[in-house]
Amino acid sequence: MTTMNQRMRGEPSVLVFDVNETLLDLESIGPLFEKLFGDRRVVREWFGQLITYSMTLTLAGRWESFFTLGQGALTMVGDIHGVEVTDADVEEIRHAMLTMPAHPDVKPGLTLLKDAGFRLVTLTNSPANPGGPSPLEYAGLAPFFEQQFTVETVRAYKPAPQPYHMVAQDLGVPPSSCFMIACHVWDTMGAQSAGYHAALITRPGNAPLPLPSSPQPDITAPDLPTLADQLIQRG
């Protein structure tokens, strides 16, 4: 098994996890979209708009919190579909985003990585939840991570370089010591452009982007235990 000393001689030792969809199951809020729009697949449309406009705000030099942006995107999708979105609908989906369960493979995979000596942290577009438990706490995942980072600190959304640099600087390690783990290519690409290594988990609805001009993930795996095995074997 790879030891920490081996990783310190060259292999990345800090695993930086995306949260929404990578660790937590976005499909769990599908029934709310089915109730509101008559089609649970609209959750994907809404989440896509949310990510698109988070990137747009950053590129335009502007900032709005992720949940506020999510509320605006929900109303926009409602207008597109001719569905009135009420304040109660917004609050129900906001609460659901804070209480999403973990994917079944996550705890076994995190246990493998923790036992192997990796440092585990998270980096999410979502804000902190000072009024209650974080989504990771609700899902029972918080004890695995030494820190939970949010892009709120630098007021720039992933895949801008600032959030990735913030994590490395706060932990006192070079970017090359960090390994981003996400199920979104835009996240792995952003991390690699900031000097990280990266791994892609191909959750349903996500796949590699085969562009010769773009950095490809160092590892691609269908679930976290498979990814953990590959990371451990790299040493």
Rank of each mutant, 00 (worst) to 15 (best):
P225N: 10
Q233P: 04
T124R: 02
H184T: 08
A156T: 05
E92N: 13
P133D: 10
T226R: 03
R9F: 08
P217W: 00
Q230H: 11
D115N: 15
R234H: 11
T220N: 01
P130V: 05
R44N: 14
P101K: 13
I29Y: 11
L200I: 07
R155I: 02
E91A: 15
L50D: 00
Q49G: 08
L123P: 00
R94K: 14
R7E: 06
L26P: 00
F67V: 14
S193H: 12
T122M: 05
M97E: 04
S65P: 07
A182Q: 01
G109K: 02
A221L: 07
L98H: 11
N5M: 08
T86P: 05
S13Q: 11
E21L: 03
Q192H: 05
K35I: 08
Q230M: 11
Q147A: 15
Y164S: 11
P130S: 10
N5H: 09
E64F: 07
D39L: 06
P159C: 01
L110A: 02
A128D: 14
H81G: 08
N129S: 13
M76Y: 15
M4D: 10
I80S: 10
E146K: 06
A207L: 06
E64D: 11
T3P: 03
T99G: 10
S126L: 00
L136K: 00
P217K: 01
P135F: 00
Y138T: 15
F149G: 01
L227C: 01
V14M: 04
P204Q: 07
H184S: 10
T52D: 14
P130F: 04
G117E: 12
Q71Y: 04
G195Y: 06
D218Y: 03
L120Y: 07
A116S: 12
M189R: 13
M8D: 09
E92V: 07
R94M: 13
S28N: 08
G109F: 01
P31S: 12
V14R: 00
D115A: 15
I201P: 00
Y138R: 13
K158M: 03
S176P: 06
C183S: 15
D87Y: 09
L32F: 09
R94I: 14
T124I: 03
H184A: 12
S214R: 14
D187G: 07
T99H: 15
G61D: 01
G172M: 04
Q162S: 12
T188K: 01
P175S: 03
P133G: 12
A102T: 05
A207N: 04
W186V: 08
E27M: 13
H81K: 15
E27V: 09
